[in-house]
Simulated scan of single mutants.
Amino acid sequence: MMIELDTQNPCFPAVSAADSDGLLAIGGNLEITTLCAAYRRGIFPWYEDGQPLLWWSPDPRMVLLSNGMRVSRSLNKVIKSKFADIRLNHNFKAVIEQCAIPKNRRTTTWITETMRDAYLKLHQAGYAHSMEVYEQETLVGGLYGIGIGQMFFGESMFSNESDASKVALFYLCRHLYGHQLMLIDCQVQSPHLQTLGAFNIARTQFIEYVAKFCKLETPAGLWRPQRFPSLCVPQR
């Protein structure tokens, strides 16, 4: 029987109560306190318009180590030759709006208007963050996710130029590793992320990591808006 959360005071059940697909509960709300409580327990919301609010905690869980991204020769060439303007938290709203655009012939998106509003509030509260790739002042790729303590929970990414989202992920990994944050949650298994070095771990192990890393203090200045030094080599 599906667990239904109270809309005013949702109390999440143990993640072991999730079904075989990882669906744990329905209902509740998308307030800042609720979302932070969910992420601290290894739970995230994922639903589309017309569906109730759904909460998930899949097993296994896909993760990426900040020093474990697999950079192919072609991607390395792009990093060193194409995108020279990489920014953190300069335009979170634009990133989540781009991520919300349906892709691959889909007509709907799980990043609904209600979800966008909720994550904009998370950003304003200092929990949601974006890594952004620009070309001639135009946002061409990026990603966003949630940072709590020394844990980063990836949510979505987009590319309007080839490999731009991969470049955003590369700079995110580099930035997190430079501040000794090691683990990025990728939520569910994705062949695309696997090619970049992501791998599955048991949910029990993931929950242990989340409990540990979310309690640690966030390094000073980690999420301040900034531009990153370009790795591009000037063309002769």
Rank of each mutant, 00 (worst) to 15 (best):
M1Q: 12
M1S: 13
T7A: 15
P10K: 00
F12G: 07
S16P: 02
A17W: 11
D19H: 05
D21Q: 15
D21P: 05
G22A: 05
I26C: 10
G28T: 05
E31N: 14
I32W: 03
T34N: 07
L35N: 03
A37F: 04
A37P: 00
A38L: 05
A38S: 06
A38M: 01
R40W: 02
F44K: 06
P45C: 08
P45A: 09
Y47M: 07
E48H: 11
D49T: 09
G50S: 12
L53D: 04
L53K: 13
L53R: 12
W55T: 11
W55D: 13
W55M: 15
P58C: 00
V63N: 06
N67K: 14
N67T: 15
R70T: 15
R73H: 07
N76F: 00
K77Y: 00
I79G: 09
S81V: 06
F83R: 10
I86Q: 09
F92R: 01
A94V: 06
V95G: 00
I96S: 10
P102N: 03
N104D: 13
R106K: 11
T108C: 06
T114D: 08
R116A: 08
M131T: 01
M131H: 02
E135I: 14
T138Q: 15
G141D: 01
Y144I: 01
I146F: 05
I148V: 03
G149W: 03
G149K: 03
S156E: 00
M157Y: 05
M157L: 05
F158I: 02
N160K: 11
D163N: 09
K166A: 09
K166V: 07
A168Y: 02
A168K: 03
F170D: 05
L172E: 03
H175W: 15
G178N: 11
M182K: 13
L193V: 08
L196Y: 13
G197D: 08
N200W: 02
N200A: 05
I201E: 07
A202R: 07
I207M: 14
I207H: 12
E208R: 14
A211P: 02
K215F: 03
E217D: 05
L222Y: 15
R224I: 12
Q226Y: 10
F228V: 01
P229H: 09
C232E: 00
V233E: 15
P234N: 15
Q235I: 06
Q235M: 08
